[in-house]
């Protein structure tokens, strides 16, 4: 089976988030970059699916050409067989919908029957890619999946919904699955596999290689700023009983939330 996984290279959870002085974005130069948290689950699930039913895994990513090293170490070294990296100013600045168009075209070209993505990226965190891809491909999709199994051309998945409700669903391939925390335990690469990954095929593409029409972003981000400052915190002193009653008084009279 042809299995696909979309993986975005983004700053590590511990990276410093420096807002550019003109507010036009976030400067991540020099910070540690990795395959995003949820995309790690997607990579792992794609590899496990291959191990269960056979076939091969292609990793798809849109990002700068310099991401090649991280795709090799974060996807190919773990067991993906090949990768497609779509780079260039227009691709990297395409916005979610444009990125989805490029990925959908690459996935179609590769002939995938199932594609895994993270439920959200760890930078923008828009949670749009999986569902947009499914629409552009005309496939079914299941979001925020915590369990997944294939049975021939059918699958069973458990999804995490609102208010802690979970549902077991079944459907037929082709499908896009977005991966939630807890779906699996991502593996670490072994040294020999890191060496081998250097020779695995990685196709470097540009937006022009895919005749997908308009990919110019129609969403624009501006006015970047740190989180709105919170009022300075007020430490309440005293023994447990008096601190508790003072807190209740403040919550009622000052904050007016009781």
């Amino acid at each position: 089976m042809k299995i696909g996984v979309c993986a975005k290279i983004s700053p590590h959870a511990d990276a410093r988030i420096k807002i550019k002085s003109d507010g036009s974005g976030v400067d991540t130069a020099g910070e540690k970059l990795v395959v995003g948290d949820y995309d790690e689950y997607a990579v792992e699930e794609a590899i496990r699916t291959k191990e269960a039913v056979g076939g091969d895994v292609t990793a798809f990513s849109v990002g700068p050409a310099s991401d090649e090293k991280l795709i090799r170490s974060g996807a190919l070294a773990l067991g993906c067989d090949s990768a497609v990296l779509i780079s260039g100013d227009d691709a990297e600045g395409a916005g979610a919908l444009g990125t989805a168009k490029l990925l959908a075209a690459a996935i179609k070209e590769a002939g995938c029957e199932v594609v895994f993505t993270g439920k959200a990226s760890t930078d923008g965190g828009s949670s749009q890619m999986g569902a947009m891809l499914a629409e552009l491909l005309g496939w079914a999709h299941v979001s925020q999946v915590t369990e997944f199994a294939l049975d021939g051309g059918n699958f069973k998945a458990t999804r995490n919904m609102d208010a802690g409700v979970r549902q077991i669903v079944s459907g037929s391939l082709p499908a896009v699955i977005t991966c939630e925390d807890g779906l699996n335990e991502p593996r670490y690469p072994k040294l020999p596999d890191i060496m081998k990954a250097k020779r695995k095929p990685l196709a470097k593409k540009s937006a022009g290689d895919y005749g997908v029409g308009a990919i110019a972003p129609t969403s624009n981000q501006s006015n970047y700023a740190p989180p709105p400052p919170r009022p300075p915190s007020r430490i309440i002193e005293g023994d447990a009983a008096s601190a508790a009653s003072e807190l209740v008084r403040l919550l009622r009279e000052e904050a007016k939330v009781l």
């Binding site: 979610a96 919908l97 989805a100 965190g125 828009s126 949670s127 569902a131 552009l136 129609t218 969403s219």
Partner: peptide
């Protein structure tokens, strides 16, 4: 921006060929 907002709305946006601001 509930489950439906993350699961169905991006698919609707793609169908309408339009962009979306999430959450």
């Amino acid at each position: 921006a509930s489950y439906i907002g993350r699961d169905a709305l991006p698919r609707l946006a793609a169908r309408l060929d339009t962009a979306m601001g999430s959450d």
